[in-house]
Amino acid sequence: MKMLSRMALGATLITLAAGGQALAHHGWSWAESEQTELKGTIEEISMSPPHPSLEVRDADGTLWQVDLGNPNQTERSGFTGDTAETGDAITVLGNRNTDASRAHMKAVRITIEGTNYDMYPERIAAD
């Protein structure tokens, strides 16, 4: 019986640890607090969970990973897999990774052909 309790405790601890990593991944702790703007061209669109993302090439040739909101947030913003295509020009307002060596940011708003798609409207700095 003691062995079964220890196994259950171990499984619970592993589950909690994995859940903590998921929360950290989806949080904002890895991103700078200041918002920046990225202009470029969409190279790839992924609408797969846990969050849709884009690959955007900037004018300098750097390929950026741009995380959007979770699938429901992204859809509520009006952005779907059919909204844009590879090759489309895009402007991303978001928070970049605190590790400046990584071309990675979390979008709060994307703009395509003059239309704004607000993933996190409550986080958008004053226009």
Results as ranks from 00 to 15, higher is better:
Leu54Gln: 07
Ala125Gln: 12
Gln65Ile: 06
Arg123Phe: 12
Lys2Gly: 12
Glu85Lys: 10
Gly27Gln: 03
Gly81Asn: 08
Met1Lys: 13
Ala84Thr: 04
Ala24Tyr: 14
Asn72Ser: 14
Arg96Asp: 08
Glu37Leu: 02
Glu44Lys: 07
Ser77Ala: 15
Gly27Val: 01
Glu75Val: 08
Glu85Ser: 15
Leu16Phe: 13
Ala11Ile: 13
Ile112Ser: 04
Leu68Ser: 09
Thr41Met: 05
Pro50Arg: 06
Glu55Asn: 06
Thr98Leu: 14
Asn72Asp: 14
Leu13Thr: 11
Arg102Trp: 01
Glu44His: 03
His25Ala: 15
Arg109Leu: 10
Arg76Cys: 01
Tyr117Leu: 01
Thr91Val: 13
Gly78Cys: 02
Ala17Arg: 07
Thr80Trp: 02
Ser48Phe: 04
Lys106Cys: 03
Asp118Ile: 15
Asp60Pro: 00
Gly87Arg: 02
Arg102Val: 11
Glu122Leu: 14
Arg109Phe: 05
Glu44Ala: 04
Gly94Met: 03
Lys106Ser: 12
Thr15Ser: 12
Arg109Lys: 12
Ile42Trp: 01
Thr41Pro: 09
Glu34Asp: 11
Ile112Asp: 08
Thr12Leu: 15
Leu16Glu: 04
Met1Thr: 03
Leu9Lys: 15
Leu54Met: 12
Arg109Val: 15
Gly69Trp: 10
Pro52Met: 10
Gln65Asn: 14
Thr115Trp: 00
Ala24Trp: 13
Gln73Thr: 08
Thr15Phe: 14
Glu32Ile: 01
Ile110Leu: 12
Thr98Met: 14
Gly69Met: 07
Thr12Pro: 00
Ser53Met: 07
Asp58Pro: 02
Lys106Asn: 12
Thr98Gln: 14
Thr86Asn: 09
His25Cys: 08
Asp99Pro: 05
Thr41Leu: 01
Ala107Tyr: 03
Gly61Cys: 06
Asp118Trp: 11
Pro50Asn: 09
Thr41Asp: 06
Asn95Asp: 06
Glu43Ser: 04
Glu113Met: 11
Ser5Gln: 11
Ala8Gly: 04
Trp28Lys: 10
Leu54Thr: 06
Ala8Met: 14
